[in-house]
Amino acid sequence: MESIQIDQELNIKGEVCPYTFVKSKLALEDMESGEVLRVVVDHLPAVTNVPRSLTNEGHNVLEVAQISDTDWAITVRKA
């Protein structure tokens, strides 16, 4: 897989739903359309909830990947 240019990273390990999505959404609001945000979470429900909510808002979830025993990275391009 070709590497994706990340414009901003948001580490919200320790945060739980729905604040994982709330903080991801706030970060995207401050970015430009087309820019890419990488969100790192360790709250398992967020791994499905956050991409679903971001997709519902029209953003393009590029990748959801487990990056360590505890952490997941959600990569999303702002609509």
Binding site: P18, V22, L26
Partner: peptide, 21 residues
């Protein structure tokens, strides 16, 4: 937003018609 504001207004921020903006 402060951490308190994010929590207090989270149900607003989640709404597409409201959001952080």
């Amino acid at each position: 937003f402060s951490e308190d504001q994010i929590k207090r207004y989270s149900r607003h921020i989640i709404l597409p018609e409201v959001g952080g903006k």
